[in-house]
Write a protein that binds this DNA or RNA. Structure first.
Lengths: 352, 352
DNA sequence: TGAATTTTGATAGACGTCTATCAAAATCCG
DNA sequence: CGGATTTTGATAGACGTCTATCAAAATTCA
């Protein structure tokens, strides 16, 4: 019925060459005539030969070594991501995969580049990093690639660079999604939206606003964009002032971080007054609590668990020189009070 | 720096026993004194020994054989699932995992049980199946478990049975989510919801309605529940009649299948009239198209891609007698026109 | 104590691939 | 044609685990 899968010896036999020659072909070593190579490839195809990765890894005592570079700091989202990578690392030991989780100062391209240069010296099988949008980082990626180390960008992409893949959401799509939700929440009525970002120069934040505007078009108007630098206190103060100044605001879209400040502010509002609809990004302990308690309405999440899984999957495939699967962007996920993931609750609490 | 991971020989040496004894301990074979077993376990812990699965599988020429049992028929959701499993099967060959994808007549517990009995005879390493809610199925699961074949339920659970795990959404949660969205879409105004299911006796459909009612509470009222038997024509006719009879309806929640009929009906409505909000389940070609064209508003999806990935992950872990990870239910995902996954579009078209 | 039983040790071969080596054969080039 | 070069074949050992076998040692029990 189903007999044993063909081995490389079977391939060699069918191709009419020696095992050594077949081996040279599949491992791309030099010194094989074209004719022989063709015969081997034909045999591989004919038999449906698939290299036994387990045996291969065993024979080379292969240990996959991947480095993950995350921005440090108090950002709850990246703290969560770090926890998830640490958990993954523990699990992956059984598959002989080791993750070196590194932190670099956030928003510091020089620090990132320095770290990348150091990593290029190590015998790594792949690197994942949160790219910042500048040439230094692009050069760092190129340096890694020059040493044949695959590179995956995470959360924030650098499209012009030589990275092998990007794992993260499409921020324009995320913004459009929020736009649609804002429209829904207004139930056909017009409204006035207060956009809040970390900085307008941050590509991802800007893209999110663009997306939102695409959907809300001319029907809605917008208060001036606030730049909260992703800092809790600043976010809290700016939004507080804006709401006090402008009673017409019906919705707040916070496209950046620093949302603990936003939540604190909402907390301080008189509870009987109708507050604006609030939309923000990333499911972390404080945003989760705010959603559960009805202080905010929607969280758009990029599902870091899925991102972590995909990063590892990509790095493994790249290291094995296999084709990538699931290269489509992560779909931004909408969390309401009702569909909050249960299991995460504990993990989030423990982490935060 | 990082030296080679400990092998079972290292464990034996440290425990002061022979390799053979250590091997007997880790593989649970008889004929080992308690004292020796304790020493070996201590050494395993002390060294942080992790069995090299690659080597183990190699030595046993292990080929994982999993069976996936899906309901056949024209249901677009299960058609998609079948495609996803077929794709996964091709990929997994490289990891020496073979998936036998089987179909049984939908809604036919006897057919399912017969198939399960047949599967219990095969040398399988695991079975995943869409459980139906009856004792025959539970007995079938028990029969598989009696032969040490792990069982994972998929999409539809059977909590009382001996299944090792369930992969799917919590339908009450899905219903609550829809409830919240209906509430949002009404922007604070009251409304009247038309619930449509395949059958009220179908546990998942009933649970979804329960969830929705929990959230909409007393503020909304409900038209009588329609039972469309998951058949396009019936669904189309019933809803058409209901809408004609009851002009107060502001929203339709279709918790079951047969939504091609719903879409056709919406198509036939006069385009200038304001139609009710429409919420339905499962992203498949016709529902996707309807959402893109603005004929419906929201699709709640259980992300079959993720379910497929988890099923395989669970089966593999169960076969290796390792601990399961990610046992929390799948989170129902909200799709709006704006956050439809791009890459899927082609696959869905190709499949449907 | 002595025989029966249980536990332990030592070891060999297999799984499929990789790496390396050396000799033999085929091809190239002046 | 003959020497240099390239290509091929044959094969051995390693990776870590599993399975099996056989003999030796320890323990149990009458």
């Amino acid at each position: 019925m189903n007999r044993r899968p063909p081995t490389l010896s079977d391939v060699a036999r069918r191709a009419g060459v020696s095992y050594a020659t077949a081996d040279r072909v599949v491992n791309g070593r030099a010194g094989v005539s074209e004719k022989a190579a063709r015969k081997v490839h034909a045999a591989i195809k004919g038999l449906g030969y698939i290299r036994n990765v387990a045996a291969a890894n065993l024979s080379q005592q292969r240990l996959y070594r991947f480095a993950i570079v995350l921005p440090s700091g108090s950002n709850a989202f990246f703290q969560r991501m770090q926890v998830l990578f640490a958990e993954a690392a523990a699990r992956l030991l059984a598959d002989r995969i080791s993750l070196l989780i590194e932190s670099v100062e956030a928003f510091d391209p020089k620090a990132l580049t320095t770290r990348m240069t150091a990593l290029a010296e190590e015998r790594l099988d792949g690197v994942a990093l949160v790219a910042s949008d500048d040439e230094q980082t692009a050069a760092g990626i190129a340096a890694l690639r020059a040493r044949e180390i695959p590179v995956v960008t995470l959360v924030s992409d650098l499209p012009g660079s030589q990275r092998d893949a990007y794992v993260g959401i499409d921020n324009v799509v995320a913004g459009r999604t929020v736009g649609r939700l804002i429209r829904m929440a207004h139930g056909g009525r017009r409204g006035r939206v207060l956009p809040v970002v970390g900085a307008l120069s941050a590509r991802d934040h800007a893209e999110r606003l663009t997306g939102m505007r695409e959907v809300l078009g001319g029907d809605f108007d917008f208060a001036p964009v606030l730049e909260g630098r992703d800092r809790h206190e600043l976010v809290q103060k700016l939004i507080g002032d804006a709401l006090a100044d402008d009673p017409e605001i019906t919705a707040i879209y916070s496209a950046g971080a620093g949302n603990a400040g936003l939540v604190r502010l909402l907390d301080s509002l008189p509870s009987q007054a109708t507050r604006p609809y609030v939309f923000l990004h990333e499911l972390v302990p404080h945003s989760r609590r705010a959603l559960e308690e009805g202080r905010i309405d929607v969280i758009i999440d990029q599902r870091p668990e899925e991102e972590v899984a995909r990063v590892v999957e990509h790095l493994k495939l790249l290291a094995d020189r296999r084709a990538l699967v699931r290269t489509d962007p992560i779909v931004p996920t909408i969390f309401l009070r009702e569909n909050l993931p249960q299991a995460q609750a504990d993990a989030l609490e423990a982490a935060g």
